[in-house]
Amino acid sequence: MRPLALVPGVGLLLAIGYAGKLAEGSLKTYGKAHHVALPNVEYVLWAILIGLLVGNAFARSRFFSVFLPGINTYEFFLKVGIALLGARFLLGDVLKLGGLSLVLVVLEFAVAGSLMVVLGRAFKLGPKLTALLAVGSSICGVSAIIATQGAIDANDEDTSYAIGAILALGAIGLFLFPAIGHALQMGDHTFGLWVGLAIDNTAEVTAAGNMYSDEAGKWAVLAKTARNATIGFVVLGVALYFASRAGKQLEGSRAGFVWSKFPKFVLGFLIVSALASAHVFGPRQQSDLANLSRWAFLLTFAGVGLKTNFAELRRQGMRPLVVGAIGEVVIAGLTLVMVIVADKMFHL
């Protein structure tokens, strides 16, 4: 393929992604200027939404085919972005959290993952959409969904749905959690831990924790970081599961097939994360790598939006959102009970 053929599409990805970033910034600025607490709508969701509108409005017109080769590069940006994301997930962060909190993280992880799988089956969602929702709700919303999508090659509609569900519920949680915390007179540590366990996206966790107190914000971010640190292992597990499921229909070396299907860029994520954990990168270099991965995702999700088909979304109906909502409410309730019991028994 001629590199020049990619230029219009990549330019369109950049324009849509950047519009998403501007939309996120504008909403924040508006909220601050007017002293209104608006939910933090991440650039990822804006990029998908704008991409959806542009893609569905123009996909049938003849000139749109000029953009297609470039738009199809979004998978490349997705995988590079995931590998670079490793710089933000340090394995050592898990240890800072302390034993008891770590046990709660593992419990949340098991409960949230299993619950989403059960709900996904009950509502007859596809296995990949169920996996995305399970990973998103048990680890860390958007980053985990992004990484898993690449690993199991889920389709764009599933990813848009899973991200939309997790972010919409996170935005609601941002307001509800501090109100519940105050009503129950929860301590800073207990509340921070709850928020870090129950809300799925790092931005909303940080915001909800800090809305309560600085101390709660610190615990919230630590608990969340511990969940985030497991992302590589979970994506590895999910990728192996889907690769081996596909392998059942084949003859020959199963291990060889699993390896051939195994997403190699996940190794990139693990290598970059290990290098960052070993302090190979300075703090500025880490933030450079994190920013580069954000730019890659900006292009990726403009592409996901552009390739998502409204008709396909309508076919799926409201079930994924219902599953996400039921799951999140149950997880919030269970984790609340967990932190309150832990506080009563062990005085957090």
Binding site: F76, K79, V80, A83, L84, A87, P263, K264, F265, L267, G268, I271, V272, L275, F281, L289, L292
Partner: peptide, 12 residues
């Protein structure tokens, strides 16, 4: 996959 792995490591 391999290409993205190499590109990511080169960027790092």
């Amino acid at each position: 996959d391999w290409a993205t792995l190499l590109v990511a490591l080169a960027i790092a």
